[in-house]
Design a protein around this nucleic acid. Sequence first.
DNA 1: CTGTTAGCGCTTTCAC
DNA 2: GTGAAAGCGCTAACAG
Lengths: 333, 333
Amino acid sequence: MQPTGRVTIGDVARTAGVSVATVSKVINGRYGVAAATFSRVQEVIDQLGYESSLVARSLRSHRTNVIGILVAEFEPFSTELLKGTSRSVQGTGYELLAYSGGGRAGSDVGWERRYLSRLSGTLIDGAILVTPTVVDAQYGIPVVAVDPHTGPSGLPTIDSDNFSGAVTATRHLIDLGHRQIGFLGGRPDLESARLREGGYRHAMSTAGLAVDEDQVRIGGYRQVTAQEPARELLSLPERPTAVFAANDLTAIQTITVAGELGLRVPEDLSVIGFDNVPESALSVPALTTIAQPIQQMGVEAMGLLLDLINGVERDPHVRLPTALVERSSCRAL
Amino acid sequence: MQPTGRVTIGDVARTAGVSVATVSKVINGRYGVAAATFSRVQEVIDQLGYESSLVARSLRSHRTNVIGILVAEFEPFSTELLKGTSRSVQGTGYELLAYSGGGRAGSDVGWERRYLSRLSGTLIDGAILVTPTVVDAQYGIPVVAVDPHTGPSGLPTIDSDNFSGAVTATRHLIDLGHRQIGFLGGRPDLESARLREGGYRHAMSTAGLAVDEDQVRIGGYRQVTAQEPARELLSLPERPTAVFAANDLTAIQTITVAGELGLRVPEDLSVIGFDNVPESALSVPALTTIAQPIQQMGVEAMGLLLDLINGVERDPHVRLPTALVERSSCRAL
DNA sequence: CTGTTAGCGCTTTCAC
DNA sequence: GTGAAAGCGCTAACAG
């Protein structure tokens, strides 16, 4: 209508001299339209560059062929996952809609429920929740959780073996001769963080090493929240010779803080992370870490969600293995 | 209504014993609601866990406080950009919606117009187009293009200095003593690709080196499309001693292909890329490349778009500098 | 085969 | 201060 406004189904109908219902049928390939009418309408659509509004369509039909990926923010973990889902959605006929609030993540528990409420019932046919903190029993649409930050729930879930990974990380440091091993944890309310701390403690006690509670800090998984705890950890009179940080971001922050404190990594301090996000290879020195197959987790999440949508029966829980990736941030004592 | 269905404004209204109009006013903080009514409605909202549907709301009000980021697919470049936008959207009151089709990117010219049509006018208040191939004059909402694949257009644009970067890359190889320098380009229809090729040719001729057209191939910017051309390039009788690939993904592919052909990098072949995506540090050997400040481009795009939405007058074109990042994939001859 | 009608969930006049 | 009613762009019966 307006020169710059978007063209609606009404514009197409008027131009083609038919009703909007007929245009709708053409768009959706419904039966009951004469071939001549069909091609005339199609022509007008092309000519006007009409594209149906996702919003209006979904409000009405509750089917959109769009999969939602809900994340707290776009950081290395969620974007890696995105790459995996993007790859595996190809050819399925679905499109991807990644949604993230603007709020400070972490402080904002319950974001997943809010986002889902805003989008579901309309707009998306299914959702992948990335590291949700709270997972309710039922949403209106099929939902898959990736690495949920809470204990076992009814939700179909993709995660990786956090406990084993943490054991591997800690044991690696022990094998290198370290005895004073600090732990920069995630958040006590998050399942993955608890499992990683559990793995750390398990490996320590298995090796007959006592955990000095002063050397266990809460890093919060984010650079900003890890700065202070890392500084405290490295300023201890009984300074640890190695630190296992619960994720790569905080491990990298630990390296930064060490530098500020005049400590060289790995000469004065060994640091190991968890996740193996691409950034871990970029740090100086390159970070030794525990790899989660993050992109693969995205692929699995997509596969599971599609199966759910299509009513395929299958195991709703996929756990992927972790592996040690040795780079340059650890050294033997 | 239904036990599992999502709760609508009607449910809230019924439960609170008011009309939907009143609930709407409460939600949007409009004037003209008694304090008592306000708090009663608010209570019901909390109790029912009601969250207004983005779709229905936007269909009606044409204002959503959501910024759209439209990408062809979630690959290293677009996800890096996402990180930057995510960071800079914090505290602005906007939320982010990244949209990507399922189709094979690259083959699908014009995706940006389609996506924008589907989302604009509703759902998003403004859009950031990542490496769009076609940029029309006018869309219904403020739009910023990042690294558009087409020549100068009327669109506000963020890009980096592709030409200078390509000159730097090529000169680096020349300085290292290389004379037979192959170029694995992007796509002829993409502006950045043309500029990078232009920079390559400029640096070559400036150094008095002739470009052997056989050593210039189209790599298409993607791993799959680069495989064959890379193989051809490295199988030439007059094999280049160095290859400048137009982006990191195809540079990494070149390294892979070299390995398959029994060539060692950098001993037998030097490779330099462009972009400095995190993946470039992960390749073996780590890739020497030209860094674009991708996350910063996201930050700038967000800032420019917000200014556009708020009617702030400013220069609608931001060009960011590139820089050489030396790692291990090049050696002196 | 085609058009009319009734909403989807919400916001927004405009009466009351 | 509150609610009834219209309508955003579209799809889905149902008539004609």
